[in-house]
Design a protein around this nucleic acid. Structure first.
Length: 916
RNA sequence: GGGCGAUUGGCUCAGUCGGUUAGAGCGCACGGUUCACAUCCGUGAGGUCACUGGUUCGAAUCCAGUAUCGCCCACCA
């Protein structure tokens, strides 16, 4: 489409205009879908399926999402270029409790509430809200460049997910893994729902430990004013629900009291003193009040002793009618009143500060109340066993591996999963109860036709009003998004997935549950590899947070530096499981790299010599037309292709960007572009050599464009459109092939590479010496080079012009050995492994230069002494591998030569006037 | 209470299987206006690899312990 346009790139790099239209072209070409019209995938290769956590429908994406998306997208793009069909399926999560929490806040601002609207209107409002956020999030993903298969987009509340949820639940119920029971659950009084253990955050707090007296009851049933047992509690309001006092069975202090009865104040209930070894004798008074309906430990103790369970708080954590005189009071008000009343009775023995752990709701931060409720639970032990086995047996790999231990620890100690939520936004639990209390679970959308136990007709059944924990449907995602339980073609081809990418913060919430449910329901682990991303932190290492103003909309950053630079910054230096700090410096660096990339391409495109026709296809030059620099860069290019491919294979994106940054900036731009420019400009260069030089430039540029595409898709696609290609290459880079290093390798040559490296080292040494000696930077100096190695000298002869330019030397006379040097030459001396350079001194400072050589000599002496010491140790020669010893010997010889040369040069007439 | 991770120049981080002189970016200093790029180019300074001990011919790297920071898990009133 751009054939008519000039091949030159605009002078300034403007990310916005570079990116414009490219996403649309990808969409139009239908290249995102694994089976899209533009796909060039090889059906014989195994597909690559990435699984992403569907983001919450109600939120906007932040930089953390952008990072995950970049990681997922880069993996997907790499796989696509290797010819695999790739599935990167977009989704949104209905996020039941999180969404309700957000919507409730909005409603509160309008003076409305969940209750004031009622279930139906509330859900209508939720849909309206989603209709606003959804397109915004989709737009964000497009701007970031995510190559998502939009045709397969799914939502965890769509009909397919609903069917999956019903089917999964029925299967679990039929398998005896879902059960309904009355048990203590974590209750959030603010959210008015139960929550899972994971959503209950253990928070350290300093509370108060009160010591209070319960009076013993005598044989006549009267409390004894002078006889009591003291108990310690942090929750005096639960006194109202006490049904026993427990002591340790071997506690001599209380042995005689076991079996007696005490009276609970205010509710005037007589309860037994029991013995149970759950009691810690050293804590408090060694006697503990037992409130089975409001404490997990007490619940267990109560069951062991057959105690009554008396609930004294309601859904809003207010004292209920069981609470006698305190009915209607909030739990904290009741606590204060009870403490005061006990004090008035003389039964408050003491109060002291006490450090403890309080469970708080992940959403509302309210203190979670253990409450007795009849709810649905998933029996997790059998599921956990399967999930653990899949990792132990190597069917699932977790990256980084250290998270395996965390994963096992959690699953080994897992408790049953309460999946009932008393919320409205979510999947309704497909369980129906008949008037006789029989429960029927059905996967039919209309519900069961009749009670499964007594046959009462559907009309007499009532559905459970509760909905599922949002993570229940999320746990089905890898297969429900592909059509399960239907036996769809997608499910057959793309399940199980290849890589599951997400942050380590939802290892338990999501990954563990997907594995538990996936193994049980589909018989296989839902993915092969779990790639755990680190979290994106602000420059101070804090979590990005919208409330603190550190949460950034990716679109803002994209507007500033472009999507490519943002993506680069987000993955540069990352490793699985490691958090990254993202600050302005990193963003600037990425922007600069994009800029560098752009201008390098401009140079190459603009440098095409007339020998190469404008529409020529790309090809590697003939070996005979290559100069040493071309062989060198082709060798480096091959090495980069290999290293980057390896890094992708290991999912080490941080290495990918590091390798490419170095290859593009330090090798290609800093050295090869300069060498190639000079060769192209040199009138002595033959037309064939000029063509070969440019073809090398274009070729290597093109390889690096391919290699960079997964991370920086827009700028590379844009450059690709202007580059020459080989026959068979597609119009769009996104579906071009991932390079293999073979052809570059065939043209490279290690000896030439080494020779060029050492010449570049010589240039560096000369620049260094000139700067150190205080020579005028722009002055061009005459020079004599002594290059003893014939290979290096041969390479030099071909590169004399460009190297002279880089070191600012002219004219340069090269010599095979010192003896061929004119005796009159007396100048700045530069010694490097490649050889020796003597420059006319120009306007430099002789004393500074002398001092420089002295320093170098002292340095060489020190190193030589260290090398000698090492070699002198007989144990080293005896025990170290031969290769290491040999290397040390060579090193020692090199140092000795350097010392000799430096000594000799210093002894020469360096102090004399230049004679050249 | 249990577990995990980190500690390398002023800052942010690489560092492979233990093996030449521990690297990079940013920042800093000095110097650069020729036709890709000042979002640039060149040069340099700057490190007791947290500490202690051990293993080894040899330790930033392996082992043990300590310290500091961060994170995860945890039903003792």
């Amino acid at each position: 489409m751009n054939d008519e346009q000039a091949r030159e790139l605009p002078k300034a790099y403007d990310a916005g205009s570079v990116e414009a239209g490219i996403y649309t072209r990808w969409l139009a070409a239908d290249v995102f879908a694994p089976d899209g019209a533009g796909s060039r995938a090889d059906p014989a290769k195994p597909p690559f399926v990435i699984i992403q956590p569907p983001p919450n429908i109600t939120g906007a994406l932040h930089l953390g999402h952008a990072q995950r998306t970049t990681v997922e997208d880069a993996m997907t793009r790499h796989a696509r270029m290797t010819g695999r069909s790739t599935l990167y399926l977009p989704g949104k999560d209905h996020a039941s409790i999180a969404a309700q929490y957000v919507l409730d806040q909005i409603l509160a601002g309008e003076g409305e509430s969940r209750q004031s609207l009622g279930r139906e209107r509330y859900l209508e409002r939720m849909h309206a809200f989603m209709a606003e956020t959804r397109p915004f999030m989709t737009g964000q993903l497009e701007r970031v460049g995510a190559s998502l298969d939009w045709g397969r987009e799914r939502f965890t509340m769509d009909d397919g997910s609903a069917l999956a949820v019903r089917t999964a639940f029925k299967r679990l119920f039929d398998d005896g893994l879902a059960y309904r029971a009355e048990a203590l659950v974590n209750w959030c009084p603010t959210c008015r729902t139960s929550i899972s253990d994971l959503e209950t955050i253990a928070t350290p707090e300093t509370g108060t430990l009160w010591t209070i007296r319960y009076h013993l009851v005598d044989e006549a049933g009267q409390p004894e004013p002078a006889a009591w047992i003291s108990v310690a509690t942090t929750r005096p309001e639960t006194i109202l629900g006490d049904t026993a006092v427990a002591v340790h069975p071997e506690d001599d202090r209380y042995r005689s009291l076991v079996g007696r009865t005490v009276r609970i104040p205010f509710v005037e209930r007589d309860v037994p003193i029991i013995a149970d070894d759950v009691v810690e004798r050293a804590f408090g008074t060694g006697a503990v009040k037992i409130t089975p309906a409001h404490d997990l430990d007490d619940f267990e103790t109560g069951k062991r002793h057959g105690l009554a369970q008396i609930t004294v708080l309601d859904d809003e954590a207010r004292v209920n009618e069981a609470g006698g005189p305190y009915v209607g009071l909030d739990r904290y008000e009741a606590r204060q009143r009870i403490v005061a009343d006990l004090d008035a009775l003389g039964d408050l023995e003491g109060a002291r500060p006490h450090d403890m752990i309080v469970g708080r709701c992940q959403r509302s931060n309210d203190v979670v109340e253990p409450r007795l409720k009849t709810q649905w639970f998933i029996r997790t032990k059998p599921l956990a066993a399967k999930a653990m086995a899949s990792v132990r047996e190597g069917r699932v790999e977790i990256l980084p591996a250290r998270f395996e231990k965390v994963f096992f620890h959690w699953l080994e100690n897992i408790r049953d999963w309460n999946v009932s939520r008393q919320l409205w936004w979510g999947h309704r639990i497909p369980a129906w109860t008949c008037p006789d209390g029989h429960v029927t679970v059905s996967d039919r959308i209309a519900g069961p036709e009749a009670c499964g136990t007594c046959g009462r007709p559907a009309a007499e059944l009532t559905q459970d009003p509760d909905i599922f924990d949002t993570w229940f449907s999320s746990g089905l995602w890898p297969f429900s998004a592909l059509g399960w339980p239907e036996r769809t073609a997608d499910l057959a081809r793309y399940y199980p997935g290849t890589v599951m990418e997400t942050g380590y913060d939802i290892l338990f919430f999501w990954i563990a549950r997907m594995m538990m449910l996936g193994e049980w329901l589909t018989g296989v682990a839902p993915f092969e590899t779990v790639y755990l991303s680190g979290l994106v932190k602000d420059p101070y290492g804090k979590k990005m947070s919208k409330t603190k103003g550190t949460g950034v909309d990716p679109l803002t950053t994209i507007a500033e530096i472009g999507a490519d630079a943002l993506r680069f910054a987000l993955v540069h230096g990352i490793a699985p499981g490691a958090d990254v700090k993202l600050g302005q410096a990193k963003l600037d660096g990425a922007r600069n790299f994009s800029n560098k990339r752009w201008h390098a391409a401009r140079l190459v495109l603009g440098a095409r010599p007339p020998e190469v026709p404008p529409n020529a296809e790309a090809s590697l030059p003939a070996a005979t037309d290559l100069g040493p620099a071309e062989r060198w860069i082709l060798g480096r290019c091959a090495a980069t292709i290999e290293a980057v491919s390896r890094a992708h294979g290991a999912y080490q994106l941080g290495d990918v960007t590091r390798l490419l940054y170095e290859a593009v900036w330090n090798e290609f731009c800093d050295w090869y572009l300069e060498l190639a420019k000079a060769r192209l400009a040199d009138p002595a260069t033959t037309p064939a050599a000029k063509a070969a030089t440019w073809r090398t430039l274009a070729w290597v540029l093109e390889r690096y464009v391919r290699l960079l595409h997964p991370v920086m898709p827009f700028i590379t696609e844009s450059i690709w459109a202007r580059l020459p290609h080989e026959p068979g290459d597609p119009d769009l880079l996104i579906v071009a092939g991932w390079p293999s290093p073979d052809r570059e390798r065939a043209l490279a040559d290690p000896a030439t590479e080494a020779a060029v490296e050492s010449l570049l080292g010589l240039v560096r040494a000369i620049r260094n010496a000139r700067a150190e000696a205080g020579l005028e930077a722009s002055a061009t100096l005459e020079a004599d080079l002594v290059l003893p190695d014939p290979g290096v000298r041969a390479a030099y002869d071909e590169l004399a012009e460009p190297l002279g330019r880089l070191a600012r030397l002219k004219p340069v006379r090269s010599h095979a050995g010192l003896e061929t040097l004119p005796a009159s030459v007396a100048a700045l001396v530069v010694i490097s492994p490649a050889g020796e350079a003597r420059l006319s001194r120009g306007s430099g400072d002789r004393e500074r230069e002398h001092a420089r050589l002295e320093r170098e000599l002292a340095d060489a002496h020190r190193r030589l002494a260290a090398a000698d010491e090492r070699l002198a140790d007989p144990a080293f020669a005896a025990r170290a591998p031969a290769a290491v010893v040999e290397a040390a010997r060579l090193r020692r010889a090199e140092l000795a030569a350097q010392v000799a040369t430096l000594t000799s040069r210093l002894a020469d007439d360096l102090g004399g006037e230049p004679t050249t």
